[in-house]
């Protein structure tokens, strides 16, 4: 069949091709070995643990919850992964904010070209009152962690 022929052509050509590849480029060598190894545990400083009060603090700062023990272990793994940075010698190196550090910031002239779109903006919000966005009462601190966990169980998802 035509299709078989198409496949046949390609399959055949590929086999021929890969045969040729056995003589790899001299830069890469024949070896399959990678040129570096992942950082081993011994090279790293002792792992940091995240105590419960820090968990609570992070949840308050981020206004995001860990949800389960798995969430906490994910954080600890993420920190462990980041610990590899300490193997690198950065003495005398300046931190880099962005690749645009040598550029000058664009200055806009003081002319009105935006605004006056209250209706478009208010449309986007679930809760508005006349022309205001609405927030619940503020400055009431988050409840304690146990209460929060209970609240989350009751929530939509």
């Amino acid at each position: 069949s035509t299709v078989g022929l198409v496949n046949g052509v390609f399959a055949a050509s590929y086999t021929v091709r890969s045969g040729e590849n056995k003589t790899s480029h001299k830069c890469l060598g024949l070896s399959e070995l990678p040129t570096w190894e992942p950082v081993s545990e011994e090279q790293l400083p002792p792992p940091s643990t995240v105590p419960l009060d820090l968990v609570d603090k992070l949840e308050r700062l981020a206004l995001v919850d860990f949800r389960t023990k798995q969430g906490l272990s994910c954080l600890e793994k993420a920190i462990r992964f980041a610990d590899q940075l300490h193997v690198v010698d950065t003495s005398g190196v300046e931190p880099m904010d962005s690749v645009l550090e040598d550029r000058a910031l664009y200055l806009r002239s003081d002319v009105v070209t935006e605004g006056n779109c209250a209706d478009k903006l208010l449309e986007l919000s679930k809760t508005t009152v006349e022309e205001y966005f609405v927030a619940p009462p503020g400055n009431i601190p988050l409840p304690k962690r146990e209460e929060r966990t209970a609240m989350l169980k009751d929530s939509e998802f």
């Binding site: 206004l63 927030a135 619940p136 503020g138 400055n139 601190p141 609240m151 009751d154 929530s155 998802f157």
Partner: peptide, 15 residues
């Protein structure tokens, strides 16, 4: 759930 601004934020973000 919006007993307070912070609670509303936290739960919206959870959901």
């Amino acid at each position: 759930m919006d007993s307070s601004t912070e609670t509303m934020y936290a739960i919206s973000r959870h959901e």
